[in-house]
């Protein structure tokens, strides 16, 4: 098909070779780039399990509570007036509001409809129909770990 063999033929050949090399190289790069990115783990280096570092003991005074995150759901860790550390789901069993610790009542309280829970997570009064889910608490040095479903 080439009307003038020779110079143009050679340049076309080298063009084809260049194109082939470049495009195959680019394809390889396109395939390898995600791989190189994939093998480096993200900031949160572990797949979330049922355990989370909820609070520092030193940041949790007596008769106080702290809301932490369990994935996208809130949990609450409570340090009672006597120094015990307990943790519950912070999702109110009535309409899913986030509960809080009320130092004046010395128990857990939901602001939405004035629901009260005791320090075992049991619903005391107000509309909540069920107790809060109780989580397991492990204290390692200053770290308060909370485990779900244990």
């Amino acid at each position: 098909m080439d009307p003038v063999p020779g110079k143009s033929g050679i340049s076309r050949k080298s063009f084809v070779n260049w194109l082939l090399g470049t495009s195959l190289g680019a394809t390889l790069a396109a395939a390898l780039y995600p791989v190189f990115r994939f093998v480096i783990p993200p900031e949160v280096a572990e797949a979330p399990v049922n355990r989370v570092l909820a609070a520092k003991l030193s940041e949790l005074p007596l008769n106080a509570g702290k809301v932490f995150r369990f994935g996208s759901k809130p949990g609450i860790v409570v340090r009672t007036a006597t120094g015990e550390v307990r943790a519950f789901s912070a999702v109110c069993t009535h309409l899913n509001c986030t509960v809080q610790y009320r130092p004046d009542f010395q128990h857990v309280w939901c602001a939405c409809h004035n629901g009260h829970y005791d320090l075992q997570g049991k619903n005391l009064s107000g509309p909540p129909p069920r107790p809060l889910e109780v989580y397991k608490v492990d204290i390692a040095g200053d770290d308060v770990y909370v485990t779900k479903g244990a």
Binding site: V16, N17, L19, L20, T22, S23, L24, A26, T27, A30
Partner: peptide, 13 residues
């Protein structure tokens, strides 16, 4: 596009 280009180059080759 890169893959398509590689295919074209290979066919030409």
């Amino acid at each position: 596009a890169v893959i398509a280009l590689a295919m074209v180059a290979l066919i030409l080759k």
